[in-house]
């Protein structure tokens, strides 16, 4: 618990100072973006309104004070409370990330299962598929998916819509590379497990290969991947920056990217805080899952 608070605090602090260190005047963001020709008066007014004329440490303390009372500050560019901005964008990104996470898992399991069934050739093929999947850039994969499923086949919309069909292509774009990575990590353990004594003895007991896989091997395979769920979520947020741009999908990733570009400090810090919180929660859930799957962990 205390650890989580520390993580949140440190994340907010680092982001706050890092964004402020970046070249570019936040006051310009407030009055219409970079390249503004506004006069000194307007700049001074903006600085005063947002407390940017105070010493940096005082701004920081004020920001922390605001955090304690649940106030993430006011966006420079959007002139709206950050909580509101994030509140608007979060659901879309969460839906995207969670769908992608589930899809990624499903695909990875399928790959590992498929490869575990066959001989060496199918394992090599499986590896090739996984590595290829893991090495597909989101922006390219997304563009190809749009080309095939939206432009050519016309099955799905190319621009993301709030309903389910609009979620499929963006989620797939995130899920496929993730599946490749998860598959690789799982396979390592799956191979070990398949070759182990307990697998042999299970086979000797007359367990079918499928049963062996789902009941025994999977447990081993899932462990390292489960511990990665929190991290996977983080990469999904990174991927969301690209996928949301590509599919014109409103969300936290795009907000974050635009905010960094616009030096919108409150929005960047606020977004990082929310992602950090999500990470903490998901890691916790991953640990729980790990404990469920691995009897050894329960003792600890």
């Amino acid at each position: 618990m205390l650890g989580a608070v520390f993580v949140l605090w440190a994340a907010a602090t680092i982001t706050f100072f890092a964004v402020r260190a970046v070249p570019g005047d936040p006051a310009e963001t407030i009055i219409g973006g970079p390249g503004s020709q506004a006069g000194e008066e307007a700049l001074a007014a903006a600085r005063a309104e947002y407390g940017l004329d105070l010493p940096l440490w005082e701004q920081y303390l004020r920001y922390l004070g605001g955090l304690l009372s649940g106030d993430l500050g006011t966006s420079y560019a959007l002139r709206a409370p950050v909580t509101e901005v994030i509140g608007e964008q979060l659901p879309g990104t969460l839906a995207l990330a969670l769908t992608a996470l589930l899809l990624g898992w499903a695909l990875a399991l399928l790959l590992v299962r498929q490869a575990a069934r066959g001989g060496r050739v199918s394992r090599v093929l499986g590896t090739i598929m996984e590595v290829t999947a893991a090495a597909l850039p989101h922006f390219w994969l997304g563009a190809v998916l749009i080309l095939v499923f939206a432009t050519t086949l016309g099955w799905l919309p190319s621009v993301s819509t709030p309903d389910l069909p609009g979620l499929i292509l963006p989620a797939l774009t995130l899920a496929i590379p993730l599946a490749g990575f998860l598959g690789q990590v799982m396979r390592e353990s799956a191979d070990d497990a398949l070759a182990s004594t307990f697998a042999l003895s299970a086979r000797a007991r007359g367990e079918s290969p499928a049963g062996l896989f789902w009941r025994h091997v999977l447990r081993h395979a899932v462990l390292p991947a489960a511990s990665l769920s929190g991290w996977a979520f983080g990469t999904l947020i990174s991927g969301a920056v690209i996928v949301e741009t590509l599919f014109a999908r409103p969300g936290l990733g795009r907000t974050l990217f635009l905010a960094v570009q616009g030096r919108d400090v409150p929005v960047v810090t606020g977004t990082v805080l929310v992602v950090a919180l999500a990470y903490v929660l998901i890691t916790f859930a991953g640990d729980l899952l790990e404990m469920l799957v691995d009897p050894r962990r329960r003792r600890v």
Binding site: F6, A11, W231, G234, S238, V241, V272, Y279
Partner: peptide
């Protein structure tokens, strides 16, 4: 590590 993690890599 935890703090590191909490950051989206791309940020």
């Amino acid at each position: 590590t935890e703090v590191f993690f909490a950051f989206p890599g791309i940020l």
